[in-house]
Amino acid sequence: MFDTLLFLLVDGITNGAVYGLVALSLIVIYTVTRVVNIAQGEYVTLGALSFSSALSGSFNLFSWLVAGGLAAFALLDLADRRLLSSVRIRILLIRSVWIAGVLLTAFAAHKFPGSYWLAVLAALAATVSLGTLTYRLTVEPVSGASPIVLLIVSVGVYMVFHGVAVLIWGAEPQSVPPVVDGGVSLGPVFITYQSLWICGFAVLAMAGLYMFSERTLIGQALQATAVNRVGAQLCGIPVRFAGQLSFAIGAGFSAVSGLLLAPLITANYDMGFPIGLKGFVAAALGGIVEYPTALVGVVLVGLTESFSAFQISAFRDVIVFLMVIPILLWRNAVRPPEAHEH
């Protein structure tokens, strides 16, 4: 009995860590841009799948697509007549380096197939770029629209990502190796190293984000934007940049959680959506705007999921999702969210 408990605990915490990374992505994006990003789970998928093809050394169509998008994005910015020519040159430079970065990592992974960290780099460069691109193309033009319109736009983005993932990688699951094979026996329970990697990365990511938003100027600017967009703008914080950054962070965290999780399940075009959904629940439990409470939320979701899967599997999802209601009610009573969101 104790073995089972321990096993479920490890399983729950590993799942919780993944949901936590996605929840964190959702939170960062929501607080800064007010986008409830339905497409978030797709970054998990794209991270895992692009990692898989980068590792195999095959031609990485995804990276090329992203690079093409970035070029279009650069053209869009250059066409902005309000900008000074010196600013335009700077934009051109930054964008060129950026595009070169995406293509170079993809090329390097292609040249040295099987190199784990090169492949991680290539996958990350492409997905993070895709995040900023998505913000630039689908959020910035309507940043003043009501949150519900932004939500539906993100549904459109989800459709595009989902379709493109199937087009590039097909419906077949892709195999993804773990960082290190094997695991460690903790008494009667065998814990894979991959589980440890996932939990480790989750903790690091959360701590890193916390340090970033507390200790650095950019992080503070991001926080300020999250609290009050207009106020931040008046203080000279470039809200557009904050939005792009939040999407980049969100895409990056989700992509890494995808490529770390992939060895435990299988990487396929459909893996992201349910994870994104659980991330929502976890974020909801944490109230979507606070990092530390979201952490409690994710562990709860992961544990409830694995325990109820063991007990009464048919009602597993019913329990996981209904659990949200009392917790939301409690949070609402203790500390309600601001009633008006702009």
Binding site: V281, A284, D317, L322, E341
Partner: peptide, 20 residues
């Protein structure tokens, strides 16, 4: 039960109820 929820809590609750 849920209409006392404020801000984005309400859509989140409805999401959960829908899936459940």
């Amino acid at each position: 039960i849920t209409l006392r929820l404020k801000g984005h809590f309400l859509p989140l609750a409805s999401l959960a109820i829908g899936i459940a």
